[in-house]
């Protein structure tokens, strides 16, 4: 795994909104089969980073390479690039006027020009894997948030992307639905899918990641394997950030003392 080629390589990325620098001189690599989890406080630029990778945001400097090809230099045909990058958003964003199956088939059939029968077979196999085959003819509004998000993941997978980007995909889900979505992503990791994941679920990050990337104020503060990062974060900022997720049993002890 250590010598695998980088699927995604970002060098010296700069992203500005007018004068405000959102990402400054950021570089990272994701190798084939690797799972990178980006964590950090809100507004640190992690979602923007994902959006830059598939061209939903323009960048003001640096380079992004997909399988060794720059997608920044020269005339990029973004629709072709995006077919190789699966992206799942926080708010699922299924197309409300189409059934689950139609949602999934739109990309393979219209963007990739694949046959309906063949694409349907693949879509149904993926749906079965995420436990939603019986909902293929439902409309999005008939599904729960967790089900919608699983469909959104299948929609991206059916494009057979080189890499999957997950942008806080459980952030707007009820707690009991978070698990079903995270399990799907864990399953993908086991099968060797290359992924770049932005999340606030620390336990999940630790379980799924090959490498944790901690971002703050638009740049990478530290990156390390999950066990090292969560046990011994090097930077103050990472330590402070991780402390937010710790709860001390102070009140209970006080009550016992009474």
């Amino acid at each position: 795994m250590a010598v695998a080629r980088p699927v995604l390589k970002i060098t010296g990325l700069h992203k500005r909104y007018d004068q405000l620098e959102v990402i400054g001189n950021l570089s990272l690599e994701v190798r084939k089969g690797e799972v990178l989890v980006v964590i950090g406080p809100s507004g640190c630029g992690k979602s923007t980073l994902l959006r830059c990778i598939n061209g939903l945001e323009t960048i003001q400097g640096g380079d992004i390479e997909l399988n060794g090809q720059s997608i920044i230099v020269g005339h990029t045909r973004w629709n072709l690039v995006r077919q190789q990058i699966g992206m799942v958003f926080q708010s699922y964003d299924l197309f409300p006027h189409m059934t689950v199956l139609e949602n999934i088939l739109l990309g393979p059939m219209k963007a990739q020009g694949r046959e309906r029968a063949e694409a349907t077979k693949e879509a149904e196999a993926f749906l079965d894997r995420v436990g939603l085959l019986d909902r293929k003819d439902s409309f999005p509004r008939q599904l729960s948030g967790g089900q919608k998000q699983r469909v959104a993941i299948v929609r991206a997978l059916c494009m057979n992307p080189e890499i999957m980007l997950f942008d806080e995909v459980t952030a707007s889900l009820d707690p009991e639905m978070v698990r079903e979505v995270l399990d799907v992503i864990l399953g993908l990791a086991e099968q060797g899918m290359t992924m770049l994941i932005v999340t606030h679920e620390m336990a999940f990050a630790r379980a799924v990641a090959d490498k944790i990337v901690f971002m703050d104020q638009g740049s990478i503060v530290e990156s390390a394997p999950p066990d090292i990062f969560f046990q011994n974060p090097v930077s103050d900022r990472a330590r402070k950030f991780l402390n937010i997720f710790q709860f001390e049993g102070v009140k209970k002890e006080e009550r016992h003392n009474d």
Binding site: N54, G55, L56, W78, N79, L80, R82, Q83, I85, G86, M87, F89, S91, D93, L94, F95, L106, G107, K110, A111, Q112, R155, A156, M159
Partner: peptide
């Protein structure tokens, strides 16, 4: 996001 989701699956 509807437009972005469409772009994200590689549609023109």
């Amino acid at each position: 996001h509807q437009r972005e989701s469409g772009r994200a699956i590689g549609l023109t």
